[in-house]
Design a protein around this nucleic acid. Sequence first.
DNA 1: CGATGACTTGACTTCGCTCAAAGACAGTGG
DNA 2: CCACTGTCTTTGAGCGAAGTCAAGTCATCG
Lengths: 245, 245
Amino acid sequence: MAKTAKAGASGRSKPVDKVLLPSAAIDTTDLLGPRRLTARDRANLATISTRLRVRAGTTIFDRGDPSTAIYSIGSGAAVSFRPLARNARRVMAFLFADDIFGLARGGRYVNTVHALTPLTIFRIPTDSLKTMLLRNPELQLTFLCKVTHALRESQRHAILIGSETPTSRVSRFLTMMEQAQPNPDQDTVALPMTRKDIGDYLNLPAAGVSAALADLSKRGIVTLDGPNRIRIRDRRQLTAVADEG
Amino acid sequence: MAKTAKAGASGRSKPVDKVLLPSAAIDTTDLLGPRRLTARDRANLATISTRLRVRAGTTIFDRGDPSTAIYSIGSGAAVSFRPLARNARRVMAFLFADDIFGLARGGRYVNTVHALTPLTIFRIPTDSLKTMLLRNPELQLTFLCKVTHALRESQRHAILIGSETPTSRVSRFLTMMEQAQPNPDQDTVALPMTRKDIGDYLNLPAAGVSAALADLSKRGIVTLDGPNRIRIRDRRQLTAVADEG
DNA sequence: CGATGACTTGACTTCGCTCAAAGACAGTGG
DNA sequence: CCACTGTCTTTGAGCGAAGTCAAGTCATCG
């Protein structure tokens, strides 16, 4: 390590020797590949979690609600978003089976979570979970890895938002959705969310999402089997468009 | 919980009943306030970490390098970024004292990290750390909280990038930098990075950053004590501009 | 069968990016 | 001590792309 590089703060700027005091953010760890929950872990978690069924359109919790539990998705799809000024919102993530949600700060949920489809979820009280994690370091490591993975996803999201063109963003989004929810059908991607949801995730107006999809369609890269199912025709071009944006 | 809401997928779109298979992302946990390392934790970590000093401009590691350790910053500032196509890059985070970095995937670092200033860092081999975390669940919980915090920061970053106007983005950025590196001087913010660094973080051209700062300056909201030190004149307006973008 | 909500499409307008040139320092070497 | 050089920064002009808005279509639901 420690290769040379163009000076960090040269020219006009003083080298700014040490400056700067403590902080708290992170960039982060990994420690191991994608750890899956073991059968025993699942059994343990089952003892402290309750299973719930909710209808499509339900709000699981709102940003600002007291956070007493975290949740895991058994089946279905949900959307996690943050309300912004001028009643806009930023969609932070789409959630599918095995995803965990319930990010909190200061005892309050940070994001609002909506069910996009009928959902089965597992509710795990925070304090029980904490006790269990402290008694079971292996299980805790699994959670650490899961959060780390969420961090990587969030970073991909930040990159996604920054992509130049709308078409590029949508292309990337399609490949992400395909990875997130494995093959319901080969070469086909389910979109259980509205164009506005997608737009709020990609930082695009809903009309822009439509336009980008139309663009991809005209180029023969995808076809629309109804508004909520996309068929990928040319995977190579799709990733090409995604990358060069 | 479970309030009603406008139907998730109504109108033309079929309710898309359950669909969707396993995945791995997360939204996430918190479990506790910002846990600080205890004196004993620090002592323990000291036994497996080595202290390094690096010059400004040094590359600590590149994206793709084998990841054998994670790092913690003792003092100084660094930037973590990801190279993109067309030799652009996306800055993922600016790192200051007490921040951890070294996010990896599949045994490779995900981001490149550059020293912006002279740096003292602590190198912690991954496998030693893993062993220690498994033996010390309390310490591991601290790490879990740190990663969770990093996740929150990354989500803020995603929101930041999506902010409408350049001026709004820069305003938000200034308040973030102020929080990240506590008061070197009241109402003053140090910027140990170049305009291009800031732009690559905010998804703005360097010229756009300058323009936005000039804008804030003309409005009397900030003044520039040299290019690398900003003085905040009107905190109320600053946050107002940040929010309404 | 009418109403609602989602999606699509097109025209207009504006905002921000691209590009280029000038200005300002810090460090260097004479 | 001073001029030089390279880098970073600032500023301005022109242009293109993308967001806004509104109208039209379609499917589903009551």
